[in-house]
Amino acid sequence: MKPTDLAKALSQYLSVYLPGQRNVSPNTISSYRDTFKLFLTYCKQNGLSIERLTLAQVDEALILAFLKWLEEERNNGISTRNQRLACIHAFFRYVQTEHPVGLVTYQKILAIPMKKTPKPTVNHLTPDSLQLILAQPDPATSGGRRDATLLSVLYDTGARVQELVDLRVRDVRLDPPPVLSLTGKGRKTRHVPIMSNTEVVLRQYMAENRLLHNGAQDRPLFCNRQHRKMTREGVAFILDKYVARARAVSSAIPDKVTPHVLRHTKAMHLLQVGVNLIYIRDLLGHVDIATTEVYARADTELKRKALEQAYPNMVAEGLPQWNQDEDLIEWLSSL
């Protein structure tokens, strides 16, 4: 069977354009791939032959029906719906230059708007809660020492969980000043300093696991029990385990603590001790300072202190207590 124009365009987009011309990460390609797997599944369920599906059949009405199916049948949230739509938009921006004959149809698809979503709150841990979680791994076992090192590095660097699991021995520099090289979104690398306590536990961990000799440069920094590269799910499992233990000790631990919460926590702690937003932006690997400003907007205590410094206290401290005014009490009692 001769491949359709949709099959050719989608194959070229995922296997050549994204990795070759856009140089996007494998995780981004996987996200686009999953979107179109869902889209083709929806088409198949609604009587459309995937083998014969063409670009001319993919119009605004079909995309809107697919988005509705995501929300109503698969119970996806608005943010997930918007993410799928963003992948579809990106594909049709590519298609409109490769197959301009359907430009009007493609532009109608590109005009489908994102749904408004409430701004998510920035969940973070207090210093006491963080210390309690980091104290849970058992230092008497090799697994506990690995987990303690992993969680310490995750917090201290403010790394995304994928950046953490992608770390290799060659990305670690323990000589002063100790630095980790993280490769983030868009395959951009940034160099993040680590604090002395983290450097000590990381050096001990690497010495114990024979990661300091020259032949280990390409080995993953953190491995699972099968001696394979740690996964994002594995990191989340480790964190959940110690969060549950810490919650049994203190009710102050939030209900949900994900690896990304440790990233938020690092940013909030830096902000609270007066570190400039520009430095926090560079540490986290944000492209735009506006992304980092969400932490400043989220910290109500910083807002209160800023207002106290900006304006004098206009309320006198010696105002009389209302419950000592007998005439007022008598009037209130008569109501």
Rank of each mutant, 00 (worst) to 15 (best):
E73W: 03
H124R: 10
V315L: 12
R281L: 02
T80Y: 15
L283S: 00
L211K: 06
L283Y: 00
V161Y: 01
D218Y: 10
A298V: 07
L154A: 04
Q204R: 11
Q107L: 14
A216Q: 08
R219G: 04
L284F: 13
V261E: 04
D282F: 00
A246Y: 04
Y295Q: 06
E208C: 03
P176I: 02
I109G: 03
V315K: 12
T292V: 01
L284M: 14
E73H: 04
I63L: 08
A267K: 06
L132F: 07
L154W: 01
K116V: 03
Y311V: 04
Q162H: 01
T149P: 00
R228V: 01
G234L: 15
L174T: 03
L270D: 05
Y242N: 09
N75R: 11
T183K: 13
V95N: 02
I253N: 05
D34Y: 11
E308Q: 13
K229C: 15
A316E: 07
L132T: 06
S251N: 05
A298C: 09
K119Q: 09
P220G: 04
A56Q: 13
T198V: 07
Y279P: 00
K229Y: 07
L55W: 11
K37G: 06
M314W: 02
V122S: 00
S30H: 14
S333R: 15
L18S: 01
D288C: 05
P118N: 05
N313A: 07
D240G: 09
A248L: 13
N214Q: 14
K2G: 05
T28M: 10
V122Q: 00
A56H: 09
T291W: 04
N75S: 13
T157A: 05
L103A: 11
P3Q: 13
Q321C: 09
N27F: 07
R81E: 08
E163N: 06
H264W: 04
V257H: 07
L53P: 07
L110V: 03
E293R: 12
L283C: 01
A216C: 13
V273K: 12
K68V: 09
W69N: 10
A310Y: 09
Q217M: 10
E317W: 05
L18V: 00
V192L: 10
T258V: 01
L67S: 08
D175M: 15
H191G: 00
P254D: 08
G143E: 14
L70V: 01
E199N: 05
S49F: 15
K119D: 01
Q217T: 03
T231Y: 13
I329A: 13
A216M: 11
T291E: 12
I194R: 03
K119N: 06
G234P: 05
T4L: 03
P177L: 12
T141R: 14
Q309G: 11
F91K: 04
R203S: 15
V58K: 05
N46R: 14
K188N: 06
Q204A: 11
R33K: 15
R304V: 12
L55K: 06
I78Q: 11
V169A: 12
A140P: 00
V153L: 14
V172P: 02
L307H: 15
I280M: 02
F66Q: 05
I289C: 07
G318K: 15
P113T: 12
I78Y: 09
